[in-house]
Design a binder for these strands. Structure first.
Length: 215
DNA sequence: AAGGGCAACAACCGCCACCTT
DNA sequence: CAAGGTGGCGGTTGTTGCCCT
């Protein structure tokens, strides 16, 4: 599962890491830390560029890196986070201890994306039904029921942005504050809705991104 | 048994933001 | 303020192994 080894023009090795290289890098970083990635290969005695060393360390050699399969719970977590913040792999990885952004990204592309694409197709079919009834969407209480049906507020906003109702709200934040005037905020979670406290870690960046998209 | 296609994953590449000088 | 260096991030590629015909 790796590339054939080769040497770059500046003498740096490319391709798969050998056990010996791993051992050298790991031993050095565990002893001295990663104070300067560009210099580390020289001091650690490996013919790799600093970037390559950093990647190897972050994705594979770090002591707390998990190497096994992703659990069902981790899958759900990735799907949920991705639905809210998109391809922010580093941010997602920060919430899954022991999983690197690269691993999560790969896992997404090979396993989870297909699942989401299929789900989107199903939602598009549902959206056609909503489009036919969108003329009746003119108050927040109706919007709440729509969100519950639609499963995803971002998708809902995208839908509404083409409707006259969208002009009534300057931002998704205003929309959501109108919709959820209690201290709780609804966000999507896989196939079911969950309730999160307003101002939650997840809702804030989500809404910020949301506004950035609109502006 | 062979080989073609696809899935899985490690690693590379380019870009960007931040920091230092 | 500008320029250069560095780390970090996300997209993409390349290789291997497995499965199916």
């Amino acid at each position: 599962m790796s590339r054939t080894s080769n040497i770059t023009k500046n003498g740096m090795k490319k391709g798969p890491w050998s056990k010996e290289e791993d051992d050298k890098l790991k031993a050095y970083i565990q002893r001295y830390g990663h104070w300067n990635w560009r210099e580390i290969p020289r001091f650690a005695g490996v013919s790799r560029c600093g970037k390559s060393c950093r990647l190897r360390w972050m994705n594979y050699l770090r002591p707390n890196v998990k190497h096994g399969n992703f659990t069902k719970q981790e899958e759900e977590q990735i799907l949920e986070l991705h639905s809210k913040i998109g391809n922010k792999w580093a941010t997602i990885a920060a919430q899954l201890p022991g999983r690197s952004d690269n691993k999560i990204k790969n896992y997404w592309h090979t396993h989870l994306r297909k699942r989401v694409v299929k789900k989107d197709d199903d939602q598009n079919e549902n959206k056609i039904v909503h489009d036919e009834t969108s003329e009746s969407v003119n108050d927040p209480s109706t919007l709440i029921s729509l969100v519950q049906d639609n499963d995803d507020i971002e998708a809902l906003w995208a839908t509404l942005s083409t409707e006259s109702i969208a002009s009534s709200y300057s931002s998704s934040a205003e929309l959501s504050s109108t919709m959820f005037n209690s201290s709780d905020c609804l966000v999507s979670s896989g196939d079911s809705m969950q309730t999160y406290t307003h101002g939650d870690f997840w809702t804030d960046p989500f809404l910020a991104d949301f506004d950035a998209i609109r502006s």
